[in-house]
Nucleic acid binder design. Structure first.
Lengths: 294, 294
DNA sequence: GCATTTATTGGACTACAGGTATAAAATAGT
DNA sequence: ACTATTTTATACCTGTAGTCCAATAAATGC
């Protein structure tokens, strides 16, 4: 990640939180980030794009957080599930975007791209939740898992919103989540209302085979090849080669890889592929999870 | 309702629906309504206030609609309940405000007043729903009625949103509502999560005694006295007097009153108290409902 | 009918927004 | 040290919400 871009994003994020999106002018961002207008438009084509970049970061943060929570825990652990759901709310709250995520479906046609971006995000969230519900409450609920996900998600959202508007800020989100899960646990048996195939386009690629993850990892590394070259960091180049070699090998040394990936991430810190480094780490953790499962 | 104000509201409403709120400039409204800037700011202090006026109208429309639906039907009729819930969605949809009602809790602090206005509206909606749930599913659910209301409301909202974003526009909202009600019917027995007293400030004044409604009606008529005088309509003045007399009487002639109120409303058409006329009619219908119940 | 009050007009004006364009200065790559 | 890119600072464009005000039109009181 470019230093200037980072600077802009950090300043903008603080301002969006403190003042709100539409009341924060570009000039405000320029002043706060100590950059000029030209620079801003060099990195973002609009204010909206800047917000979307911030939201993407937050999304990654959520995914990473949930991944971390699941490590070493059973997929059917309900309390892990609750914590994972809460992760979005905590991180959204941290970024003061609680509302924005669920809403911003205003009457405006102005922020169309932003709207679609958010719609996509929460449809994916519904899919994720449906999948996790199957894992936690059993495969036999799959048929109605989307019903459950929507019920649960909707209840959580409205309940937390209501509590917030009533000024009951002391109620932790986890309690609301347990309350909502209780509701779906009690229900079942009827015909599913929301069919699974509605959501097919939004389902994340399932990690059915570790081969796929391996391929994903490989692809990411290959995509990064030119960037890595450009950085002219000998160590990094070596790590790059090593990781690719291990991935094509039938007997990859996972422990060694873990260490190397850690160094890799360190090496790309403060470069424009910093975020990719983190992504690699996430993928690798998924890989390990699966190796353990086998 | 003033003619010019009406003109502005009508034009603005059409534009807000067609183009969206923030993309509609005041100039657009001026052009469409054929009025000047000065006139606009004579009636509204801002564009937001104009939107709020429109939303208030819509709210009245919903209340009126629900009132109409309940006439002659049992308070415990589930299908009436469903239709009443659907009323908000249909009317919101008609005005293309579906989204705005549930959302507009964006990161903006700009539209603070608008946000609070909407928050109040939907908190009242939750209260209304909780009350109706008690009527439909029995008093013994009162303890958990707010839990149910939030679950139901949240599920309806998210489900309809999801269906919309998935392009499944052919599913009628009533189906979604039945689905959501099914969910709350299956649940119950646990400790209530949302306590009734949280919502006290938002609960509408219950019409516990018809005396209260009578008083309300009386008050409205008394408040209108100067306006009625100003209109210099002999018939209207006579109606006004007649209605007030009947209301103080112990044996009001309800059928006659109904007829007179109808004429009353006719007489105030196109005046600045037109909306009050409708309000009187609504109050009167509530009065009749209660008289029947006794 | 006339005088007074009130509503309406329409444009000038302010202050600010998002975004473009550009020449000069700073920085980095080789 | 030379080149290429990035960054800066500013001027500029178009459009916005909202204020102000003198001139005009319409309603109202007498």
């Amino acid at each position: 990640m470019n230093k200037k871009k980072q600077q802009i994003i950090e300043a903008a994020q603080i301002l969006f939180i403190k003042k709100g999106f539409s009341v924060t002018s570009i000039q405000d961002i320029l002043d706060a980030a100590n950059i000029s207008k030209g620079t801003f438009y060099n990195y973002f084509s609009s204010k909206t794009e800047c917000l979307m970049a911030i939201l993407s970061f937050i999304k990654e943060e959520v995914i990473y957080n949930r991944q971390q929570l699941s490590i070493g825990k059973s997929a059917s652990d309900k309390h892990v599930f609750v914590k994972q759901i809460a992760a979005r709310f905590h991180i959204d709250k941290k970024h003061n975007l609680m509302a924005l995520f669920a809403s911003l479906t205003s009457t405006d046609t102005a922020h169309q791209e932003l709207k679609e971006f958010l719609n996509q995000q929460y449809l994916k969230e519904v899919c994720w939740m449906a999948e996790r519900i199957c894992e936690v409450f059993g495969e036999d609920r799959r048929k109605q898992s989307y019903d459950d996900a929507v019920t649960c998600f909707g209840t959580i959202h409205l309940t937390s919103k209501v509590l917030m508007d009533l000024g009951k800020t002391e109620v932790p989100i986890e309690e609301t989540i347990y309350f909502s899960l209780q509701k779906i646990e009690q229900t079942g048996g009827q015909q599913p209302f929301l069919k699974e195939d509605y959501f097919l386009p939004y389902q994340q690629k399932k990690n059915t085979e570790d081969k796929n993850i391996k391929k994903q990892l490989q692809q990411v590394l290959i995509d990064l090849e030119p960037n890595v070259k450009k950085l002219k960091n000998k160590k990094l180049a070596y790590y790059q080669k090593f990781l690719l070699d291990q991935l094509t090998s039938d007997t990859p040394d996972l422990l060694l890889m873990e260490s190397v990936i850690s160094s890799y991430q360190n090496a790309v810190q403060d470069t424009d592929i910093e975020d990719k480094g983190r992504y690699i780490q996430i993928l690798f953790m998924q890989l390990i999870e699966e190796e353990k499962g086998v």
